[in-house]
Each structure stands twice: as C-alpha cells, then as structure tokens.
Design a binder for these strands. Structure first.
Lengths: 124, 124
DNA sequence: AATCGTTATATATTTGAGAACATAACGAGT
DNA sequence: ACTCGTTATGTTCTCAAATATATAACGATT
C-alpha cells in the first residue's frame, strides 16, 4: 500500500535499485573499504605491492600510499615490506590483515543482503 | 570471540565507526539521495528554487540541474516551476515529491539502524 | 513599457584528485 | 662493484567536476 503509492510515481519501464557504499572509519577518517581489501588480497597472492598494483591497474605509488595509511591507523602493521635483498624484496600481509579481510567480507555480505531486501521491497 | 580478535588489532584510543552512503538508482543512474531530499524540502518551505539553493549554499544553477534531472527520471514531475508573474515566479513540489521524501526518510532510518548495530558489534 | 524576482541556459574559471613521470635507496647474489 | 626487482618518495601534468560569472526570458503588477 505504502509501496504501491511509491511505485505509481516511477517510470514503469525503468529498473530501480537501492545501492550504497560501506566503509570503516577510524577517528573520522575512512580507513578500510573494498579497495584495500582487494589490494591486500593481491599482495598476499603475489608477494609484492608492485605486482598487486599492476594486477589492479593501479600505480605503485597509490598502492603504497594506501598500505602506508593503513599501517599508520593500526597497532600492528597489516603489511610487512622488505626493500632490497633476494628478488629485490617483497611484501607479506599479517594475520591481522587476514582477520580484517575476513571481517570485512562478512560485513559486506550483511550489507548486500540489506540492499537486496530494500530493493525487492521498493519495486513490489 | 571473533569480534574480540578484531578489536585486538585496532588502536585502543581510537574510535571506529561503520559508515556508508545510500541512494536510489534508476537505470543505473543515481537519482535520489540526501541532497535532493534537502533541496525539495527547502523548496517546499520557501516556494523558490533560488531561495532554497541559497539556504543550502548551493548555486542556483546546480539546484536547477538537480531538479531538472529528477523531473526527467519520473513520470509526473516532482517540482512545478513558474517563471515570471507575481513576485517573479516560484516553484512548488508535488504530492509525488512528498511521498518520495517520506519513503526516503524511512529508508534512511532503517539504514542508520543497520550502521549503528554494526558499529556497536564492531567495537565490543 | 518599465519593474521585479524568478526560472532557464550558456560560458568561463578554478581547483582538486588522480595519473604520469622521475629518481633514489635497498640488500642479497654474482 | 655491478645487477636486479622491489620499496620509497617527490614532482609535474591532465582532466573532470565544481564554482563563478553573465545573460536572456518570463509574466503579473504598476
């Protein structure tokens, strides 16, 4: 009934969706969203910030800035880097990073469910 | 326990929040969010796009573009404008606009509840 | 026909974010 | 000492988006 009255306003041919973005803030600053998650995952797979960035079509500089900002907002670093040495160096992610990624994945699933529910109710 | 392990990663002094944005899409295009809601409300209160824009510290041009985009995505216009005439003209919002605003308000409340719940569970 | 505050629209300017480019440091292996 | 691929960092360029500026049209009232 309430929904019915909304539907009558809208263009019948068009498709409507409720969408959104979600992130974690630390002291008012955005600090963990989908970008970092993908980046951390790729660093884990490739062992290198450089390769991970290329995989995402992102500049190394930007990737490094993301990692740096992350490490500064957290007690124990999420990424351990080594410059120089065998194969030139590399990076590994920590257990803390893994836990954050897992949490974020579950949070994201709950959010997606929320959006899907609202979208369904909106256009019915 | 799972949450406990997350908390141990984070900076004890800092405050964390789950935050997000929410909007309605029409055919993949963003079409209704907090901005338009405030603008429509102010047009309703002032009777003028011009005054509403000033109230929001927004240029008339931008306000007009928002209104124009809205009207084009919907069957019946959300704002009726008149240029010229008594007092130079003016604008009123339609019943459809009122219904959309009301729906958006309720949607926003459900979203805020979601965010608050997640924030509470995150930092506990 | 002159006035007034508004709607409607075009054009120029600024500015902020990202991309692109450049360079240095690092350290094990040869 | 030199090579190699990586991390680390500074500087410049570019382009889109927001902002500012300008102008025209509108129509009831006087």
């Amino acid at each position: 009934m309430n929904k019915e009255s909304i539907k009558s306003i809208l263009n019948p041919g068009a498709t409507y969706k409720i969408r959104g973005k979600l992130w974690i803030e630390c002291n008012g600053k955005k600090f963990f969203g989908p970008g970092p998650v993908e980046l951390l995952t790729l660093i884990d797979q490739t062992g290198s910030i450089n390769k991970a960035a290329k995989e995402m079509n992102m500049s190394y500089k930007k990737a490094w800035e993301i990692i740096n900002a992350l490490n500064e907002l957290v007690v124990h670093p999420l990424v351990i880097t080594q410059s120089g040495g065998e194969k030139g160096g590399g990076s590994v992610i920590t257990g803390e990073a893994r836990r954050l990624i897992k949490y974020h994945k579950q949070l994201r699933e709950r959010f997606d469910a929320f959006l899907e529910k609202e979208t369904t109710e909106f256009s019915s």
